[in-house]
Design a protein around this nucleic acid. Structure first.
Lengths: 287, 287
DNA sequence: CGTAAGATTGAATTAAATCAACTACAGTGG
DNA sequence: CCACTGTAGTTGATTTAATTCAATCTTACG
C-alpha cells in the first residue's frame, strides 16, 4: 500500500474476537454462522450486540452481510453515509489523513463494533476503516433521506445504542490519551483489547502492526517496541510477535492505571492530586 | 476530550462536511431569550443546533429550561440517565475521577453541546459536568423505559444527531491528543474554542483555568503556561489572563496542524506530531 | 536463499515533567 | 484599611522520558 510501515493489512490468523463494549457480547456463534451465509437474523444481531430483544427493527427479519478481505476499505472518508456496518468478525483500523498528509489511526474496530457512525451527523463518513484481516460485516441500511443521512423510521433507537456505546469508548480512550507515559497508554490499550475480547484466557493476538498502535497511541514505533520489551522484562506480559500473554494482570492494571471510565460516584473528598476547576466547586461540594 | 466541546477539531476553516457541523452555532438570540424565560420552543432549539426543521419531536412544542450557577453539577457520574441537556448558554467541564482518585477533564461543553450522552448506552451517566460559569440548559427528557434508558418514541432521530455530532468531535479530539507536542495540542484547543464560538472576532475568553486545560490536554500546568507564553512571544496570540486574541491565524493553524480532514486516501505515516517549539516559533516569527 | 518490510536495540538529542521559588490576586478577618 | 491566607499563574533549574537517527535483527514470502 502506501509507504512502508503502514497499518494496512497483515497476516495473522483470524482472531475472532468479540468486542464491542463492556460486558455485552457473550459470543453468539449463531450470528457468526449466519453471517458466513450472507445474512443474519435481526434478533440474533441484537443478541450479539447485547441489545434488548425489542423489535427496534421488527419489520426487517434479516440484515445482509458481506465479507471483507484484508486491506479492504468498506467505509471511505467523504463517501455518503448510506449504511452502518456492524463487525461480526475480523478487525479494522479507523484512520484519517491529517492536514500534513500523514496517516493517523484513531481507533480499531472488532466484532460488536460499528463502522460509519461518524457519518450520521453530516451524511458523509469522516474517516475510513481498513480491514486488518479478513472479516464479515452486517449491513445496516439507513433508510432516511433527512438531512445528513439521519436514520429514519424505527431504526433510530437501535442506532442510538450503537452511538451511545461508542461515545463511552471514545471518552475512555481520550482519558487514556491524556496519560503522559507511553507505558500507561500501552497498558491501557492491551487491557482494553484483552477485556473486550471473547477469549477468557490471558493470551490474545493483536491484528495490527506496532506502527498502527504507535499512531493510535500517539507515540513513536520505537517507544512501543521498548514499552513491550519493558512489560516483558518486568514479567507483566509475555510478548512474542503479535501474541501477548498477560502474566501479572494486577501489575498490568497498575501500569495502565490512570483512566478507565466507568468510575463510581463522584466525590471522594480531598483526594490527592485532585484539582479544582474553580473556587466554587468546593463550596458546592460541601453541601 | 472531551465531549462537547473539545479540542476537537475542525480546524481548517473550510472543510465542510466533516468535523462537526461546519458553521453551527449561528447563535439564535431567540432561543436564548426564551431559555431565560424557562422554556424554549422545540423548533427554535432545532434551529439553534442547526438541525432540520423536521418535527422530530413534533408533539412537544417546548422544552423546559433551567439555569445553572457556577460550580453546579447538573449531570453526575452514576446517576440514572433520564435527561439530556443542551447547553443554551454558559460552559461546563466534563470530568471523571480516575482510579487513583485524581480528576481528569475529558471535555468542555458550550452552547450547542449536549450533556449526558454517555449515559444513553448504560442508563447511567459515565461522567459529570461542572459549570464553569452561570448558564442555561434545555432539558431533553428521555421518555423511554427500555434497557439502558434508551430513548423511545419520536425522540431518537433527534438524539442521533446529537450523538453523531459528538462522535465526530471526540474522534477529532483523539487525533489531536495523539500529537506529542504541547504547543500543537494547545494550538488546536485554542482554534477549536475560537472557531466554535459565536463571536467572529479574533478575541475570546476562556472560562476554565490553566489547570483544567492542562488536565484535558494531558500536559502539566507549567507546560500550558509556557506554551501560552511562547505563542505570545511568537506574536501568534496575545494572552492576557484568560483573554486570548489571535494575531496570526495562519501561524496558529500551522502550529495546530494535525487535523481531521475529509481528504483523499493515503499519505505518509504518522507517528507523533512534529513541531519544534523553539525552531518553529522562530521560523514563524520570520514571516 | 535472498529480499524487503517490520521490529528491535542503541546512542544522542530534545521536549516535557518535576521540583521549587516567586508573583499576583481575591477573600477573610482583625 | 491592611495584613494574612490560599489559590492561580508564571518562571527557572534540574531530571526524566520520549523522539530521533541509525544500525541490526527477524520474519514472511518470492
Amino acid at each position: 500500500m502506501a509507504s512502508p510501515d503502514t497499518i494496512d493489512g497483515r497476516w495473522g490468523p483470524v482472531h475472532e474476537g468479540i468486542g464491542g463494549d463492556a460486558a455485552w457480547p457473550p459470543r453468539r456463534p449463531r450470528c457468526i454462522e449466519q453471517a458466513a451465509a450472507g445474512r443474519v437474523a435481526a434478533a440474533d444481531l441484537m443478541a450479539f450486540l447485547g441489545l434488548p430483544d425489542a423489535p427496534a427493527y421488527h419489520d426487517r427479519a434479516f440484515f445482509a452481510c458481506r465479507s471483507i478481505r484484508q486491506g479492504e476499505v468498506p467505509v471511505r472518508t467523504g463517501d455518503p453515509c448510506q449504511y452502518l456496518y456492524v463487525v461480526i468478525g475480523g478487525s479494522l483500523a479507523m484512520r484519517i489523513i491529517e492536514t500534513d498528509g500523514t496517516e493517523r489511526v484513531i481507533g480499531f474496530q472488532r466484532a460488536g463494533d460499528t463502522l460509519g457512525l461518524d457519518g450520521l451527523a453530516t451524511g458523509h463518513y469522516a474517516s475510513e476503516s481498513v480491514a486488518l484481516e479478513a472479516g464479515t460485516l452486517a449491513i445496516i441500511p439507513l433508510g432516511g433521506q433527512g438531512r445528513g443521512g439521519q436514520p429514519a423510521h424505527r431504526l433510530p433507537t437501535f442506532v442510538c445504542h450503537l452511538l451511545g456505546r461508542q461515545i463511552i469508548r471514545d471518552k475512555a480512550t481520550l482519558a487514556v490519551m491524556a496519560a503522559t507515559h507511553a507505558l500507561t497508554r500501552l497498558g491501557a490499550f492491551l487491557l482494553d483489547w484483552h477485556e473486550h475480547g471473547a477469549d477468557n484466557g490471558p493470551s490474545f493476538e493483536l491484528p495490527m502492526s506496532r506502527s498502527a498502535i504507535a499512531s493510535f497511541l500517539g507515540v513513536s514505533r520505537e517507544t512501543i517496541s521498548r514499552a513491550c520489551a519493558d512489560l516483558g522484562r518486568a514479567g507483566i506480559v509475555t510478548v512474542r510477535g503479535n501474541r501477548f500473554t498477560i502474566v501479572d494482570a494486577d501489575a498490568l492494571h497498575r501500569t495502565a492505571a490512570a483512566a478507565m471510565m466507568p468510575c463510581p460516584h463522584h466525590g471522594r473528598e480531598a483526594s490527592a492530586g485532585r484539582m479544582r476547576l474553580n473556587t466554587e466547586v468546593r463550596e458546592l461540594q460541601a453541601h
